[in-house]
Amino acid sequence: MAKGEIVERVVDYVVKAIVEEPEAVTVTMVDQGPNEVVAEVRTAKADMGRVIGRRGRVAKAIRAAAGAAAEEEGITADVEFLD
C-alpha cells in the first residue's frame, strides 16, 4: 500500500461528496518526509467556499478525517486547499 493511500481515498471521497462538481476535484499527495503527507485539494472555484465552510469548519473537519486516515497508516497528514 502506497503511503498516504487511505488519506488520499478519504479526502477524495469526502470532498467529492460535498462539491457540486466532483469531476473538477483533484487530490494530489505530496510527501513531507518519511511519516508525513500533505493532500493538496483543488476544486472548481465555485466549490471552494463549500469545502472550506463557514469559519473554516468544513476544512477543519476534512483535516480531522484525514488525520484519522493517516493514523490508520501510522503517519500524519495535513490537507491544503488550493485555488
Binding site: I18, V19, G53, R57, V58, A61, I62, R63, A64, A65
Partner: peptide, 16 residues
C-alpha cells in the same frame, strides 16, 4: 473529535 468532524461533514453533504 473525529466523530464530530464526521458529523460536520455528513451535515455538509446533506446541505449539498
Amino acid at each position: 473529535s473525529v466523530r464530530s468532524s464526521i458529523h460536520e461533514l455528513t451535515r455538509t453533504v446533506l446541505q449539498r
